[in-house]
Simulated scan of single mutants.
Amino acid sequence: MRKARAVLVSAVLATGMSLSLGAAPAHAETLNGIYRDYSECQRVGSYGDDQGWWDDWRCEWMNQYRYYFLYS
């Protein structure tokens, strides 16, 4: 009985983990580049929008790294 319970618990945990790992929030953003200049970040963001690679994008300054991060 112990072995059957251990196998059942393992199967339930594995199923739960596999379902939760595949889920991502609907508003998840992807990092698409790191740039030293704001103008370069804006240029690449606009180009990606024109090419249809992403619908919305933003350049965010990270003071701790001293770079601009392009998210879409």
Results as ranks from 00 to 15, higher is better:
Ala26Ile: 00
Gly22Arg: 08
Leu13Arg: 07
Asp49Arg: 09
Thr15Asn: 06
Met62Gln: 11
Leu70Met: 10
Thr30Ser: 14
Leu21Met: 04
Ile34Val: 13
Pro25Gln: 04
Val9Trp: 03
Gly33Ser: 09
Ser18Val: 14
Arg5Val: 11
Asn63Trp: 06
Tyr68Gly: 04
Asp50Ser: 07
Tyr67Pro: 04
Asp49Met: 12
Trp57Val: 00
Asp49Thr: 14
Leu31Glu: 14
Tyr68Asp: 01
Arg43Trp: 13
Leu31Gln: 05
Met1Asp: 08
Ser72His: 02
Gly22Ser: 07
Trp53Pro: 08
Asp56Ser: 09
Tyr67Lys: 03
Trp54Glu: 05
Ala14Asp: 01
Trp53Phe: 15
Arg43Tyr: 15
Tyr71Phe: 15
Ser72Pro: 03
Thr30Phe: 09
Ser39Ile: 13
Cys41Glu: 13
Ala23Gln: 12
Arg2Gly: 09
Gly52Thr: 07
Leu31Val: 10
Ala11Leu: 02
Ile34Asn: 11
Tyr71Pro: 09
Gly45Gln: 04
Ala14Asn: 04
Ala26Met: 01
Ser46Tyr: 05
Glu60Ser: 12
Val9Thr: 10
Tyr38Pro: 09
Val44His: 13
Asp50Pro: 10
Gly33Arg: 06
Ala28Leu: 14
Ala11Gly: 02
Ala11Arg: 05
Tyr65Trp: 08
Tyr65Ser: 00
Ser20Leu: 05
Thr30Met: 11
Gln51Thr: 09
Ala11Met: 05
Tyr65Met: 07
Cys59Ile: 05
Tyr65Arg: 01
His27Tyr: 13
Ala6Asp: 05
Arg5Gly: 10
Gly22Cys: 01
Ser39Pro: 14
Asp37Lys: 11
Ser18Phe: 02
Ala4Arg: 08
Asn63Gln: 10
Gln64Ile: 10
Phe69Trp: 05
Val7Ala: 04
Glu40Lys: 13
Ala28Glu: 01
Gly48Thr: 11
Arg43Leu: 14
Ala4Thr: 11
Val12Thr: 03
Ala28Ser: 06
Gln64Ala: 10
Tyr65Cys: 03
Ser10Arg: 01
Leu19Tyr: 07
Tyr68Lys: 01
Arg66Asn: 03
Thr30Ile: 09
Tyr68Ser: 03
Tyr71Arg: 02
Ala14Glu: 02
Ser72Lys: 01
Gly22Gln: 06
Ser20Pro: 08
Glu40Asn: 15
Tyr71Asp: 05
Asn32Pro: 10
Leu8Cys: 04
Val12Asn: 02
Ala6Cys: 00
Arg5Leu: 05
Cys41Trp: 07
